[in-house]
Design a protein around this nucleic acid. Structure first.
Length: 165
DNA sequence: CGGATTTGACCAGCGC
DNA sequence: GCGCTGGTCAAATCCG
């Protein structure tokens, strides 16, 4: 059912942060990509779903339980958390203009697919990113951003931001 | 040669 | 108090 409106697992997590209005950057909002076809994800503008978090109804209690852990952690961090859901069967790196360096991979229990951890290559920038495939639709990729970029956006970022705004 | 990627191990937090 | 899960680090390896 979760696939109906593209409700991603971390939806509740994001909603809490979103409710506090901690998002300041264009990318720091809860977006949900939903592409009708297998075309390039960058060709379709993101769909902003303000109420996506509140929308979660009778979700899987089991997952909620397991996720309570990261939920609290996320709150403690206090940074912005954004979830992107893109449809790309091969590319799982959402090009947002920043240079990401993979620093870890972990198999999570909620999903049969491994989760990849990326970090902004700029040392002064503590922004992290998590990428994992949707458990319901392996063709979808869920990208989660943590934090705010505090450095100049490298080139293409400008285009990306223009695109998102 | 430099930088990025890979993989396993380690650590911390939370639930039971 | 123990076990489980998620997240991070570090050394080795690979690619450009």
């Amino acid at each position: 059912m979760a696939a109906s409106l593209g409700l991603i697992p971390e939806a509740d997590l994001f909603s809490s942060a979103y409710a506090h209005g901690d998002f300041t950057s264009p990318l720091q909002e809860y977006y949900q990509h939903r592409y009708p076809s297998d075309l390039e994800y960058s060709a379709t503008p993101p769909v902003f779903l303000p109420g996506a978090g509140d929308h979660h109804g009778g979700e899987e209690e089991e997952e909620k339980k397991t996720r309570a852990n990261s939920k609290k952690k996320a709150r403690a961090i206090g940074g912005g958390r954004i979830g992107f859901r893109t449809r790309s069967e091969e590319v799982e790196i959402l090009e947002d203009g920043f240079k990401w360096r993979k620093y870890g991979k972990k198999a999570v229990k909620n999903s049969p697919n491994p989760r990849n951890y990326y970090r902004c290559s700029a040392e002064r920038c503590g922004v992290k990113k998590r990428v994992e495939r949707d458990r319901d639709d392996p063709r979808f990729v869920v990208t989660t951003y943590d934090g705010v970029h505090n450095h100049a956006t490298p080139v293409s970022a400008a285009a990306a931001l223009r695109f998102y705004c």
